[in-house]
Design a protein around this nucleic acid. Structure first.
Lengths: 227, 227
DNA sequence: AGTACTTATTCTGCATGCAAAATTCTGATT
DNA sequence: AATCAGAATTTTGCATGCAGAATAAGTACT
């Protein structure tokens, strides 16, 4: 299990995923110097995709570029997951408010469609279903931001969401959590349809705080060390 | 004036700046298809830096990649500047709250230093001073986000969240605006020193809303077309 | 030994080559 | 004329080469 990599990914994306995972899991230690040649060697890819992956990771703050040719693994605070949820709350509450005002019929139809798919997989009967659920959940949140019709917002979410993906991988949610989450989604759609920005925003806030609480619980249990 | 480019920039950065500018000024029209070869040709650079620039612009939402090899100039809504201010308000109010709780003496010293420099240039006596002021202002805001001690937050700020990045306007602020802005900065520092998150957040909010109002005024005056 | 200076090595930024995928063009068939 | 298959061309993704900058190693001098 956790087989090395599904094939449906280009080299750059692969490099990005692997390097980020290695940073978050500590396989690449904080402060460790990175060179394109070594990573290229380790991952069995040429320097080009490695370069692109590194560039993106620098952009996202997982890698620090010092003045010259020196590139190091950045410090990842242990409240990273919590931070991501807080930031998502800021951005997504605002997004869903806008969405409640600006969403088109097509936007809402898309949300409904994704939601229906998620309903079928909740609770997930197997690993594959869980995987689909995760994918669909991401799509749902992305669709909401997209409905907010603000490219700048969409750009921001790409960074934030990508990160929470990884965090999520390590902390599974219980069936009860997933059911609650599904109900939140349902209510979010209703709020958007009702053109009720505040309502939508409030549910979104609860939705993300619930997720954050769950993750915080997990991390405090498994990782008792301080800064 | 507006000479082609200061020399102190690598090819990738140059490509990024030029392409983004061309999109914002409409020289590259919305929906226009872009190919690496053409841009490479136009800018007199090889495909490599062009590729990297395009990648970043896609990430930031200025360029859309369709399913295959087709890449087009994205739609830039005319309320883009307003959006930037709203998003900054979300992110920076949250940041300054954290900063008020977490800032070290060094952080505050840095803010004071930047502030002092800005004070010397307000109101700016010439173009150079105005330029310095813009730089320092950006540094000030960046320093606050940095003091919030959240890499994810810092990463967010790296994305095109500077108004000057999304609208082309020269000296759109009056001396009075700049003086008020300076006073806001002063008060923000005081609030951080007093460890008063809400106070800091409120001033930051006012600070950005004031900026937004000013920009809205300008753009509505000079660009009367609707969506 | 410690420090400044020089040389050697490493590493990155950019250019270019090539194969596979995607797009466009062409012509045949209905 | 419209549709579709297949060829031709374009375009991207990845690999590799190379010059110059940055780092590390070595050496002389105090």
């Amino acid at each position: 299990m956790t087989s090395d990599a599904p094939p449906k990914m280009n080299a750059t994306e692969q490099a990005y995923q692997i390097i980020r995972k290695d940073i978050l899991t500590g396989k690449l230690a904080e402060g460790e110097r990175l060179t394109e040649a070594r990573l290229s060697d380790d991952l069995g890819l040429s320097r080009t995709p490695i370069r692109e992956a590194i560039g993106r990771l620098i952009f996202e703050g997982f890698i620090d570029r010092q003045k010259g040719y020196t590139t190091r693994v950045a410090h990842v605070p242990q409240d990273e997951a919590e931070q991501v949820y807080e930031i998502r709350r800021l951005v997504e509450c605002y997004s869903v408010e806008r969405a409640a005002r600006l969403a088109t019929e097509e936007d809402i139809a898309e949300l409904r469609e994704i939601h229906a798919a998620m309903k079928d997989d909740t609770p997930p009967r197997d690993k594959a279903a869980y995987e689909r659920l995760t994918q669909a959940n991401e799509a749902f949140h992305r669709a909401i931001v997209s409905a907010a019709r603000s490219p700048r917002l969409t750009a921001l979410m790409t960074t934030a969401l990508d990160v929470s993906m990884v965090v999520r991988t390590y902390s599974m949610f219980s069936d009860k959590d997933l059911l609650r989450s599904l109900n939140h989604h349902e209510e979010i759609i209703q709020a958007i349809e009702a053109r009720a920005p505040k309502w939508a925003s409030s549910i979104m806030s609860a939705h993300l705080l619930a997720g954050a609480a769950r993750v915080a619980e997990r991390t405090s249990k498994s990782d008792p060390e301080g800064e």
